Simulated scan of single mutants.
Amino acid sequence: MLSALQVFTTVVVGLMVGVEFAVLFVVNPILDALPEDSGQLGHAHGGRMLGAVMPFWYIGSLLLSAVWAVAAWHHHGTGLVVAAGALLVLSVVMSVLLLVPINNRNKTWTPENRPEDWKEQLNRWLRFHYVRVAVIIAAFTLLVTALV
């Protein structure tokens, strides 16, 4: 049962990393290259869509890591799982304090109501997202290392 939990947790976190990595290095460059207002509308739609799913994914990943750490407390690699959990806590805190406020504004913007500094706000979100992706990649790496 512990092995199934370890694999499931690693897959869930790995998929989250993959989605966030794709947003950073694939989706955002595509949206930014679209003509006129299409990119901004795409960012707003993506903010609504992913903003509805990602909180559950982040919290779920954190909870799965915590369950793994408790279930394997006296097993090899538990310290790595605890460290991964700490990084996932950091990613949730970063999300709530830095990224979500920008996303909540962005997802309501249209070409008619967006603020003058909308591009600067999206660039700020992107900078925070780079750091968050690095944090969750580190957490995923620790989980994989604990698994093997």
Rank of each mutant, 00 (worst) to 15 (best):
M54D: 05
S3Q: 13
L31Q: 07
L15A: 08
A44C: 04
V93G: 05
R114K: 14
G14N: 05
A134T: 10
V100T: 14
F21Y: 13
I137H: 00
N113S: 11
L142W: 04
R48I: 01
V17A: 09
W125Q: 04
F8N: 09
V19I: 11
V12C: 07
W68L: 10
V89Q: 00
L24W: 04
G79H: 01
R127F: 00
S3P: 01
V27M: 13
L64S: 01
E36D: 14
V53E: 00
V70N: 10
R132G: 01
T10S: 10
H75I: 07
Y58D: 08
P35G: 14
E120D: 11
T141L: 10
S38Y: 12
S61K: 07
F128C: 12
L31F: 13
N28E: 07
W57I: 15
E120S: 12
L2A: 13
A66M: 07
V26M: 14
M54G: 07
E36C: 08
G79L: 04
N103P: 02
V23S: 06
F21T: 14
V70G: 11
L34N: 08
V81D: 02
W125D: 01
L143C: 02
L142Q: 05
T9M: 04
N113K: 12
V92L: 13
M16K: 11
T78Y: 03
L50R: 06
I30Q: 13
D32L: 11
V53Y: 01
N104L: 09
G18L: 03
V70M: 09
V12T: 10
S91R: 09
Q121S: 10
V148A: 14
V70C: 07
V135I: 11
I136R: 03
R127K: 12
A69K: 06
Y58G: 12
H75Y: 09
L24V: 02
D32M: 12
L80W: 02
P35K: 15
M1R: 15
I30N: 13
A4N: 11
R48Y: 00
M1Y: 10
L50A: 07
R114Q: 09
H43N: 11
N104G: 08
G18V: 08
V53F: 03
S91H: 06
V100E: 09
L63G: 09
P29A: 06
A66E: 02
I59H: 11
V89E: 02
G42H: 07
L5N: 05
S61N: 09
F140M: 12
V11D: 00
A4C: 04
Y130T: 10
P101L: 09
V82S: 02
K107C: 03
N104T: 08
W57L: 15
A86K: 00
K119A: 09
R114L: 01
P111E: 07
N103V: 01
K119L: 04
L98Q: 13
P115H: 02
A72W: 00
M16I: 06
L142N: 02
L15W: 06
S3T: 14
P55N: 03
G42L: 07
G85Q: 02
R114M: 08
K107H: 05
G18T: 06
P115W: 08
I136Q: 06
L50P: 00
E120A: 14
N123F: 00
V81M: 05
V144F: 02
W57G: 12
L99Y: 00
V81R: 04
L126N: 15
L34A: 15
V144D: 01
